[in-house]
Design a protein around this nucleic acid. Structure first.
Lengths: 223, 223
DNA sequence: ATTATCTATAGATCTATAGATAATGC
DNA sequence: ATTATCTATAGATCTATAGATAATGC
């Protein structure tokens, strides 16, 4: 164990002169790991596979990241903070009418997942169904979630008074949106066969889905 | 390889006298395997773990099922035929008005997943994202899916003529329903923290979700 | 001096089978 | 005779580290 103290600290270099090779190897491992972990999950992923697809010897992976778990944690942290950011930027558009706010939120949430199509499966397998990591995640987002819900509730109440919107439990509303937005990305391989054809391109299909999701939710909300 | 011929055939005994112990061991392995494979997937599941949680020696697992893949395939087949059945029973209620048919379909599809809450994740990981198995599955359901879509299309067209229903692409409609119905089950661990409390019991929560999903889709469909 | 890199290998784990023995069914 | 069961172990794979050597930065 004593030898570990010699290990290089994993701090990203921020100086002017970035040693090309050095960054590139460490980074290559991280990127290969991301791919492998998102695809297979912690247990099924192999450090040997990661190393070889990063084009480095296997020992290098352990030199930079010491253990498989450690490397995984790095990826996990990245994904969690990504999730957190999306949650609080998508549904935070102050000074907009409620329904517009909802539409914006749905669309930007959809676009976020579109930009990270592998994320839902990773979250399901490595976060939701691993109690230890789930607890960690929950404690990190609890406050933010309560805040988002409170805001939606407040806005909605105002519209309800005006008689323009149906009252729905905000948590139910969020589950509706997330269900509709997330599902297509985990079902994508099947949809490619059964639903893509009429649209021609993936992009056209996804745009149509986004529109459909907004449409559904507007009909759900509007009086 | 020659020794394999001696292996007992895996045919479920249908005679009157069921040898208690015998069935019980083979079955115990199958059940433990189901649990392990649904939870961890093919690669991360271990035959040693399966054997020990079935309460048999490791060698017995290989005696009855020869290889890990073989055992997995048994579980996989079971789940695929379960899926197939659900698809064609949920959305096949002849002689009902269209909207009632949809409501019944949504509810029985929801109840099916409720009865098999681990299935969605298994399908996502072991079916949708494993091209070989996906191809096999697609070829098995292609005809049925086309048939269901054709029927929905026909029924809907009639209502559209009567002016009672909005025209929607049937595939889009199905994706809407499945998205709403499936998502809560994969997100369950998180929802337990953020959405269960107001409902008291899991059952109450799920009943509310089912109702919400029907509500959403009726509003989407009704003119 | 410190950091990066490689080769070799220890040690753990896992799949699968061989080979011996006990139980069961004619 | 066939089926079921166990112990022991071969062989593969995987994580992790030791130890040697090359490259880099004062």
């Amino acid at each position: 164990m004593g030898v570990m103290a010699k290990r290089r600290e994993n701090v990203l270099p921020v100086e002017a002169k970035i040693p090309e090779e050095k960054v590139s190897k460490e980074q290559a491992i991280l990127e290969a790991a991301e791919q492998e972990f998102l695809d297979k999950g912690l247990e099924a992923a192999k450090t040997t596979t990661i190393a070889s697809s990063a084009g480095v010897t296997h020992a290098m992976l352990h030199y930079y990241y010491r253990t498989k778990e450690n490397l995984f944690d790095k990826i996990f942290e990245m994904k969690v903070s990504l999730l957190k950011d999306s949650l609080f930027t998508s549904f935070d558009n102050p000074g907009m009418p409620f329904l517009e706010k909802m539409q914006c939120g749905i669309e930007s949430h959809f676009d976020f997942i579109r930009a990270h199509p592998g994320l839902p499966r990773f979250v399901i397998n490595e976060l939701l169904f691993k109690p230890k990591r789930l607890k960690l995640f929950e404690s990190k987002i609890k406050k933010g979630v309560d805040c988002v819900i409170a805001k939606i509730s407040e806005d909605m109440e105002e519209e309800v008074r005006k008689g323009t919107v149906n009252r729905i439990d905000p948590a139910t509303l969020i589950i509706d949106v997330v269900s509709l937005n997330v599902f297509v990305f985990v079902a994508m391989p099947l949809l490619r066969t059964f639903a893509f054809e009429p649209y021609g391109t993936e992009d056209a299909f996804f745009e149509a889905r986004k529109k459909e999701n907004v449409e559904i939710m507007m009909r759900r909300l509007k009086k």
